[in-house]
Amino acid sequence: MSEPILSTKLYVGIWATLICLTVITASVAFVDLGPFNTVVALVIATLKALLVVLFFMHVKYASEKLTKMVIIATLFWLLILLFLSLADYGTRAMTRT
């Protein structure tokens, strides 16, 4: 398994996209979208993170699935932590009298 050598052009393109997304997310924050401000901010952050993981960290070109499995397993565990904690916090108001 040898790492592919990507072109400088691709890396610079990803970099430019990341910078654009940063500017966009900072500007959109000043526009009132109601609850969607948070959604947009997180979607853009996830997009940026994906670009870094897939291209800068070469996951898109990894020849085996193990790296992807590690990432997915980690995110799954993070979601367990967040969701099951929220199972408590989200329903407390229902049981308090």
């Binding site: 997310t25 900072a26 009132d32 997180l42 870094v52």
Partner: peptide, 16 residues
């Protein structure tokens, strides 16, 4: 990547 998430979560909560 951690910073990519910290930035919106800490700086952009409610700017409008």
């Amino acid at each position: 990547i951690i910073w990519i998430y910290l930035f919106p979560l800490l700086y952009l909560i409610d700017r409008k």
